[in-house]
């Protein structure tokens, strides 16, 4: 297990505009851009980390949150080691959609044991004063859905961003040490578009 390459794939999911790209930028380059483009498709960045003495390459996958890009992003859920479900605390709809994001992920990533899969929930934009989602609401949702860790972050002023990623890594490593956790071995399959997935944005 120690000789295994520690390439950890962490994927950011959540409605368009909640700040996924901003969080990734803050974490990797420590920068914030107030005028960011919507992401199209999927992009990723690598970051070398040392967590609890483990040398780890964290591969952070940023996805397009907008509904119309679904077909571009879903093929790349597969192989994720951790999923960061993101909403914006000033956008209640994005919070309400969390459940849909989780379902979409579990379906397309083809996770065999969804109960055991490490999700981390991020409530972004805590710097904003007009909140629509309270901390309690969010914590409760995490509690009910599988006892996910919850972090309130701000990509703008860097609050909790690094902490959240550290937690994600720790979760994955912990899981790997416990079980020979494996994600199914077959390759990506095309043309699997379930009708059931609900809309996230509109």
């Amino acid at each position: 297990m120690t000789t295994k390459t520690s390439l950890l794939k962490v994927i950011l999911l959540g409605d368009g505009g909640v700040g996924k790209s901003s969080i990734m930028n803050r974490y990797v380059t420590n920068k914030f851009d107030a005028h960011l483009f919507h992401t199209i498709g999927v992009e990723f960045l690598n970051k070398e980390l040392e967590v609890d003495g483990h040398q780890v390459t964290l591969q952070i996958w940023d996805t397009a949150g907008q509904e119309r890009f679904r077909s571009l992003r879903t093929p790349f859920y597969r192989g994720s080691d951790c999923c960061l479900l993101t909403f914006s605390v000033d956008d209640s709809q994005s919070f309400l959609n969390l459940g849909n994001w989780k379902k979409e992920f579990i379906y397309y990533a083809d996770v065999k044991e969804p109960e055991k899969f490490p999700f981390v929930v991020l409530g972004n934009k805590v710097d904003v004063t007009e909140r629509q989602v309270s901390t309690e609401e969010a914590q409760q949702w995490c509690q009910e859905n599988g006892n996910f860790p919850y972090y309130e972050t701000s990509a703008k002023d860097a609050t909790n961003v690094a902490v959240a990623f550290d937690e994600a890594v720790r979760r994955v490593l912990a899981l790997e040490e416990r079980t020979d956790h494996l994600i199914p071995t077959d390759t990506v399959k095309l043309h699997r578009k379930p009708r059931s997935a609900t809309s996230c944005c509109s």
């Binding site: 483009f37 199209i40 498709g41 999927v42 992009e43 940023d62 397009a64 790349f76």
Partner: peptide, 13 residues
């Protein structure tokens, strides 16, 4: 950042 897409989906951001 590195873009990732499936073949045939040439639609870059």
């Amino acid at each position: 950042r590195v873009g990732v897409r499936l073949l045939g989906h040439l639609l870059r951001g």
